[in-house]
Design a protein around this nucleic acid. Structure first.
Lengths: 254, 254
DNA sequence: CATATAAAGTCACAAAATATCACATTGAGC
DNA sequence: GCTCAATGTGATATTTTGTGACTTTATATG
């Protein structure tokens, strides 16, 4: 008996998902006449590739419950503000820096509003708006399709723009940090863009508050040798610290 | 027994909420054939994410979209709002449009927040921010250096991005209108960019309220044959009207 | 203004569906 | 036959949903 190829099942699942926006484990198990466990393994695999998002009972396209920007701003505002100030202290007059979108990086932008000579590139609308109102700061917005949840541009256009630039420092966020010390993100696209941002800077710093430590988001951000430090509000667990030591970048406490 | 995915229920609740402005627990329970308690748990969850506001008996949209201070305090806000609504009436579902920066065009963006299927390109940060919060509107930000006065991108990068696109309608502002019916601008760069914007649209409309009629700013915007109309709040003087007639585009009163 | 009352909310618990994990089975390729 | 990866199975854990007792809120009414 020859078994139907699993790859076909995966492709059909993706097809259905894109047609209808969501799939349920039970329905797929019936449709392909396999056990629910098999379907779960399929979906898990697709989720690890960042192609679907798992939800109870099935999977959907897009991000089911990533908290909105305004929500994330409110969460642990003090810790994020401290991280922002710490990051700002690394920025010297006259530098050209890149700031990623996110609630933590928005605090960095706010901490930079007292500066006199800076050039800042960002993909975040609120950060651009904040900094363009600061005299003495030259602001460059990275164009592209705007993602509502981040209020920032993501996509081919943004990635393309990034290629044209080289900056002194890049400040990049992350969706979460895995136990192994890998930075993770909600979508494949975001992960790729953050990786590109890390490599755009001569040095790059990752900003993450302690709420990220426990959070494992589906896609890994590929490592970069430009990383010069991880800026946090609390010291992370031993595992993450060990991973940091191994990667030879310091953990900087705000 | 397989259950319908809870995530779909949540999404539909959000959709209904966006369409009608509010939802009631009882109606949703009937609609999805689940208990009221389940609906309450759904709404509570959405409220925790900041996506809805709970009220006794149901929920309403999270952010009531009150016009920002700068918008209300804008000079001749009523006239500009009328122009914005008039311009919005020219936009059909599914169109791809380009919106220039400016206070008048911001009112156009505001008037488009009820739409379902639109793609909007803009160089204005506030317009991008307004529209990216509107579900169903795909927003593309034109990148480049941000000018503090306009809170919008201007420059070589922006001009370059414009070349890659073709849109159904372009809505462009102007610094002023000369007696001869020429559109004028404050800087050479802005004038050149507005000219490029006019030519990016299959059709282009110029938005100008009556405070622009008397104003003669230093640089002329080169004429374009894509111009399909000038949208105003009051009819301009005879000279401007005559020039419009000669250029064969209509003056549209909001 | 106090009170009645119906509707809505809260909470704790139980039932059902789903998820996870370890281990068994199957079949293809060597 | 042996190995390995994919799949199935069943025990256990977790999540979601429903139910009913009880509390709170909105609103009308005297």
């Amino acid at each position: 008996m020859t078994r139907p190829l699993a790859i076909n099942r995966l492709n059909q699942i993706l097809q259905t998902l894109h047609d209808t926006g969501s799939v349920s484990v039970g329905a797929l198990a019936d449709q392909f006449d396999v056990s629910k466990e098999t379907i779960r393994r399929d979906l898990k695999q697709l989720a690890e590739q960042g192609r679907v998002s798992l939800v109870h009972g099935g999977a959907t396209v897009g991000i089911p419950a990533e908290p909105s920007l305004s929500r994330r701003e409110a969460e642990n505002a003090t810790g994020k503000a401290a991280i922002g100030r710490k990051a700002a202290s690394l920025v010297k007059d006259g530098m050209v820096i890149l700031i990623d979108s996110g609630s933590t990086t928005l605090f960095l932008a706010e901490a930079l509003t007292t500066r006199e000579h800076l050039t800042v590139m960002t993909n975040s609308l609120p950060i651009a708006l904040t900094l363009c109102r600061t005299p003495g700061v030259k602001t460059i917005m990275l164009g592209g399709e705007i993602h509502a949840n981040d209020e920032a541009s993501f996509g081919v256009d943004t990635l393309e723009s990034l290629k044209h630039f080289n900056v002194d420092l890049a400040f990049v966020g992350a969706g979460g940090i895995s136990d192994e010390g890998e930075f993770t993100d909600y979508t494949r696209l975001a992960a790729e863009q953050r990786h590109a941002m890390l490599n755009t800077g001569r040095k790059a710093y990752v900003l993450a508050d302690h709420t990220k430590f426990e959070r494992k988001t589906p896609v890994n951000i590929a490592p970069s040798d430009r990383i010069a430090g991880l800026i946090v509000d609390y010291l992370p667990s031993g595992q993450i610290s060990a991973a940091a030591a191994q990667s030879r970048w310091p953990i900087m406490l705000a």
